[in-house]
Every structure is written in C-alpha cells, then in structure tokens.
C-alpha cells in the first residue's frame, strides 16, 4: 500500500529515518484530502439532483442551522488539523534536535556550488560522502546569498544563510547516490547548483575518509612543503587563529575565567545571559558570540567581547568553533586534536 502510494505521488525513494516519518504523515494527509473531496462532491451532487429548481420564481424556506451542527462544523476540521499539527510538530522537534554523537560536516553554499568540509578533512565540492546508519549533522552557511540545502530522498532541507550557521541532520538508511538541490533562488545558475550525497557502508566510508585525508595532505605538502600547517585540520587552524587574533587576551583554555569566559567545556554547556535567559552554547551560538556579541551576552563579565564581524571569514569562524568544540571536559588540554 505505502509503496503504491509513494509511486502514485511520485515521491522519491525514502533513504533516511526522517523520510519515513514525513511520508507516513503525508499519506495520511493525502488520503484524508481525497476523502473530504469525495464526500463533499457526493453530497453536493446529491443535493444538486434532489433540489433542482422546478419553477422560475420558486420560493424556499430559510433553514437555521441548529447549534449542534455549527459545533460539528467547527469541531471536525479543528480536531483533524490540530491532530496533524501535533504529529508534524513532534516530528519536527525530533528533526531539530540532532543526537550528540552525530558526525559533523560543514556545508557552505556559494554561487553556484556546495562545499563540504569535515572538521579534520577532507574537503569536497558538490559531493557529500556519508556513512549509512549513522547520524550525520550538516552545519550550513553561505558565502554570498541565501541558498538552501535540499536532499529530496532524505526529505530534509535547510536554508544556508550568510553570516550564520544553521543545521540539519539525518540518518541515511540505505547506500546509494542521491540528489542535492539548491531550493532557494540564488540567481543565474540556481537551477544548476546540483550536488550529490553518496551514502556508503560505514567501513568503506572510514577507509574513504582516511585515504582522502592522506591524499590531501600529500597534495598540499607537494604544493608547499615548507608550510607546516598544511597538515592543519580545522581544529589546529582554529588554535592558530585564536593566537593570531589575540582571543587569549580575554579567554583561557584551561577552565579558569579571565576577562571573558573560559573555552574549556564551553561547547554544549548551558550559558546564562544578561537577560536571565539560558541558552545552549551550540555552533550557532558560538558563531554569534564572535560575529555579533552584543546580541547575547553572558552574565557576569564587565568587559565587552569585541565583534569580529568582517575580521573573520566564514571558514575562520568555523575553524574557531571547531577548536572551541575540541576543548572538552575540565582538565587542561593534552593536545588540541580530538
């Protein structure tokens, strides 16, 4: 039945756990819609035949609907629609909360391509490799205008907004190659901003990633053997940047607060803001703290965090975020690498 419905509705094959949820609700909505239409058509058809006009100036009696009928007319759509809303909202909440053990990938939209970056390499243009059966979180931003990362087979979509990070995630349920589209109109070649997601078995994915990393190290070393940071991962890049940009004047990495809060154990911790609000220090929050620190200030600090907007590129911000994320737990860092 569901297979048949999927084909009838031209839905792409389902390749993520979220897709199963979406389609289940979609079928319910679709069947109800058709049912409603059929009932209304039948009732109208019956009335049409039964109450055809017989005389030109035929007179009719007014009919005042009883209260029960009015209540019925309000209650039925209300209950049905709120029911759908509840299921949809439940699924959406689930979708908006990626599990903590998800693999992270950065996706950057740019006219007119997607760049995918793993925190510790490699990079790829337009093709995203992911393991099957593992949660993968995609942290999305854009370097120019708004784009939207859309994988129909996973039923996921998220706008890529310049100057901030948004996220989506999925667990791919089958291996294969799936289309990536840009769903937000972004100009001339919007319709050619195409990508692919390659879903691989886990071991194959690990092998692929290791091989790619080796290869890109080699390639970069070849290009410039003197540059030590050619080996740099996002984390070590971030560490270097923190030095260069002088974040250390106010932040520590050993767990003690200085002019600003420490970065150790900051990621995913709960921060109390000057407004009294509590927020989780996720990627979006960390990025905002650098780009627009005035928006959400941590309570208890007298110095103002300077804005690094325009001073840090998106890639640098991502590297800093990765570095902060790598500073877990209480004890001093044995090494910056995860």
């Amino acid at each position: 039945m569901t297979q048949w419905l999927r084909e009838l509705l031209f839905l792409p094959e389902r390749a993520s756990t979220f897709a199963d949820r979406v389609d289940a609700l979609h079928y319910q909505v679709f069947l109800t819609t058709m049912g409603v239409w059929a009932v209304i058509t039948l009732v109208m058809g019956y009335f049409f035949v039964r109450f055809r006009r017989k005389r030109v100036e035929q007179s009719t009696e007014p009919f005042h609907p009883p209260l029960s009928m009015e209540v019925f007319f309000v209650a039925v759509p209300l209950v049905v629609f709120l029911g759908w809303f509840t299921i949809g909202f439940r699924d959406f909440t689930w979708y908006r909360n990626p599990p903590p053990d998800a693999i992270d990938v950065y996706a950057t939209g740019k006219k007119w391509m997607w760049k995918f970056t793993y925190p510790e390499g490699p990079n790829a243009i337009d093709t995203l490799h992911v393991p099957v059966g593992r949660p993968v979180r995609v942290l999305i931003t854009s370097r120019d205008v708004i784009h939207s990362f859309f994988v129909p087979a996973f039923r996921v979509k998220q706008d890529a907004i310049p100057g901030r990070y948004t996220e989506t995630w999925f667990i791919a349920t089958r291996t294969g190659v799936f289309d990536v589209f840009c769903a937000e109109y972004c100009g001339l070649s919007h319709s050619r901003m195409l990508g692919k997601v390659v879903v691989m078995p886990v071991e194959e994915f690990e092998d692929w990633r290791a091989a790619e990393r080796e290869q890109s190290f080699a390639a970069r070393l070849d290009a410039d053997p003197t540059r030590d940071e050619a080996r740099a991962t996002l984390v070590t890049q971030g560490e270097r940047l923190a030095l260069e940009k002088g974040c250390g004047r106010c932040h520590t990495v050993d767990g003690t607060p200085h002019l600003g809060p420490t970065w150790r154990g900051l990621y995913r911790s709960m921060q109390t803001l000057t407004t009294g609000e509590n927020v989780v220090a996720d990627e979006a929050y960390l990025t905002r703290s650098m780009m627009n620190p005035g928006a959400q200030k941590v309570a208890g600090y007298f110095t103002d965090m300077p804005s690094y907007f325009g001073l840090l590129t998106n890639a640098e911000a991502a590297a800093l975020v990765e570095y902060i994320k790598s500073l877990k737990g209480e004890e001093p860092a044995p090494g910056a690498m995860r």
Binding site: V22, W37, P152, K157, A183
Partner: peptide, 25 residues
C-alpha cells in the same frame, strides 16, 4: 469550491511543519 478544497488542504499540509521541510520552495 473544488480548487479551494484542494488549494486549502494542500495549504494545511504545507503548514504541517515536518511536511513543509520537504515541500518548501
């Protein structure tokens, strides 16, 4: 009425948030 039923119901479907993730744009 016909178009309003289908236009309206598909609008409701679009406002069901999890479904909109797929259909948006």
């Amino acid at each position: 009425l016909y178009f309003l039923i289908f236009g309206g119901m598909t609008g409701i479907a679009l406002a069901v948030i999890s479904l909109d993730v797929h259909w948006h744009d």
